[in-house]
């Protein structure tokens, strides 16, 4: 109960209002701004045709092929380092697929979208050739990799995976440039960093094994 108020009440009451009005206004303004800042969060969930959703879906497609390439190398490469490289890339990217699919679910979106592949990227749609995004191997190349044996297979894997990583890094850089979603940007940056590291490793493996002609 506002007991202390009673003591001072009678005379100084009127001036107090003029005191309180600006205070209340400031408080109201601060409150309003705070709410205004908090509320749009829900609004900022990436939409179905957003760059974030496009990235999550297209990178899933892109990663899916890398997983297969990595698992082929793990299963049949002749060089132990190439096999390790293969399984490392495959599991890493499969994990990232899971993460990206979880994003879509959190955003109340679905794994499939209406936008064509790479449409989220400036000039992205033109970079798709026969349904393949930058760096992706053609069905013929995948067939050759599956059927490859020995050190030639190791070399082919390294060559194909470096190319694949170049495309993947490019896509990740694009989303870093256009997205304001902290989680997406951080994950994309992580992808850029790890794939660039892996490319360095694969290039030194190429030197060890001799690159394909």
């Amino acid at each position: 109960m506002p007991d202390p108020v009673t003591a001072d009440d009678p005379t100084p009451a009127p001036p107090r209002f003029s005191y309180w009005i600006p205070v209340a206004l400031v408080v109201g303004l601060v409150l309003g701004v705070a709410i205004g800042l908090l509320v749009p969060r829900g609004d900022s969930l990436p939409a179905d045709d957003s760059a974030e959703a496009g990235f999550a879906r297209d990178m899933t497609t892109h990663h899916t092929q890398a997983v297969e390439m990595g698992l082929i190398a793990y299963a049949q490469a002749s060089d132990p380092e190439v096999r390790t490289m293969g399984v490392d890339i495959a599991l890493n990217q499969q994990g990232q697929i899971g993460m990206m699919q979880a994003w879509l679910r959190e955003w109340n979106l679905q794994p499939t979208g209406s936008q064509p592949a790479m449409a989220w990227m400036p000039d992205g749609a033109e970079s798709v050739v026969n349904g393949l995004m930058p760096g992706m191997a053609t069905p013929d190349e995948m067939k050759r990799l599956r059927e490859s044996t020995g050190i030639e297979g190791d070399r082919l894997f390294l060559q194909m995976m470096i190319k694949h990583h170049l495309g993947g890094v490019h896509m990740a850089q694009e989303v870093v440039a256009v997205s304001k979603d902290k989680e997406v940007v951080e994950a994309a940056q992580l992808t850029i960093n790890s794939q660039q590291r892996e490319m360095t490793d694969m290039k030194s493996l190429q030197e060890k094994l001799g690159a394909t002609s």
């Binding site: 206004l25 709410i35 179905d48």
Partner: peptide, 25 residues
């Protein structure tokens, strides 16, 4: 007045998020 403004802001936020829900798949 503050309450009215706050309600307005909240209402706008809800409206905006509902609107964006419609854009969702």
């Amino acid at each position: 007045l503050v309450v009215v403004i706050a309600v307005g802001i909240i209402g706008w936020g809800v409206f905006a998020s509902v609107k964006s829900d419609k854009q969702k798949a």
